[in-house]
Amino acid sequence: MIKNLVTPNYKDGSLVNLMSSIIQHFGGDSQYSPLKDLSLSQLAGVDNVVLILLDGMGYNFFIRNAKLLDYPIMDYLQSKMTSVFPSTTAAAMTTIYTGLAPKNHGCLAWFTFLKELGLISTIPPLTRRNYGDYITNSTIKANDILRLQSIFEHIPTADSYFVIAEKLKDTPYDTVVSKGAKSVVTFTNFADSMEKIYGTIQSNSNKKFILHYWDGIDSKSHLDGTIKAIPHFEEIIQQIFELSEKIKSNCPKTAILVTADHGLIDIPKGHTINLKDHPKLEETLTLPLCGESRAAFCYVRAPYREQFELYVKNDLDAYCSLLSMKELIDSEIFGLFDPHPQFKYRIPDYILLMKENYMIKDKMLKETRIRMKAVHGGLSEEELYVPLLLFKN
Rank of each mutant, 00 (worst) to 15 (best):
2 I>Q: 02
3 K>G: 10
7 T>N: 03
8 P>M: 01
13 G>Q: 06
25 H>L: 10
27 G>I: 14
28 G>W: 07
28 G>A: 07
30 S>F: 06
32 Y>V: 08
38 L>S: 14
47 D>N: 13
49 V>R: 04
50 V>I: 15
50 V>E: 01
61 F>R: 02
66 A>K: 01
67 K>T: 15
72 P>A: 15
77 L>N: 08
79 S>H: 10
80 K>V: 15
83 S>Q: 08
87 S>V: 07
90 A>F: 13
92 A>S: 13
97 Y>E: 07
98 T>P: 02
100 L>E: 01
104 N>Q: 10
106 G>T: 03
107 C>G: 08
107 C>Y: 00
107 C>E: 07
113 F>N: 00
122 T>M: 07
122 T>G: 00
123 I>H: 02
129 R>Y: 08
131 Y>M: 02
132 G>V: 13
133 D>E: 07
135 I>L: 12
136 T>C: 09
139 T>A: 11
141 K>D: 01
142 A>Y: 06
143 N>I: 09
147 R>Y: 14
147 R>H: 10
149 Q>D: 09
156 P>W: 06
157 T>R: 02
158 A>I: 14
165 A>V: 05
165 A>E: 13
176 V>A: 10
181 A>W: 10
183 S>D: 04
184 V>S: 11
185 V>S: 06
186 T>C: 09
186 T>Y: 11
188 T>W: 05
190 F>C: 11
191 A>N: 06
191 A>P: 00
199 G>E: 03
201 I>V: 13
201 I>R: 03
203 S>W: 00
205 S>I: 14
213 Y>H: 12
213 Y>M: 01
218 D>N: 03
218 D>H: 03
224 D>S: 12
226 T>V: 05
239 Q>W: 12
240 I>L: 09
241 F>C: 13
243 L>Q: 06
244 S>G: 15
245 E>S: 09
254 T>I: 15
260 A>L: 05
268 P>D: 05
274 N>F: 09
280 K>Q: 13
285 L>P: 12
291 G>I: 15
293 S>T: 09
298 C>Y: 14
300 V>F: 05
302 A>L: 09
304 Y>K: 03
311 Y>F: 12
319 Y>W: 04
319 Y>S: 11
322 L>H: 04
324 S>P: 03
325 M>P: 00
326 K>S: 12
331 S>E: 02
331 S>R: 00
332 E>D: 06
334 F>L: 04
335 G>R: 03
335 G>A: 09
338 D>S: 07
341 P>H: 03
342 Q>K: 01
346 R>P: 00
348 P>L: 04
356 E>K: 12
356 E>L: 13
359 M>Y: 02
364 M>F: 13
372 M>H: 08
374 A>L: 06
378 G>A: 15
382 E>D: 13
383 E>R: 15
386 V>A: 12
386 V>W: 10
391 F>N: 04
392 K>E: 12
393 N>Y: 12
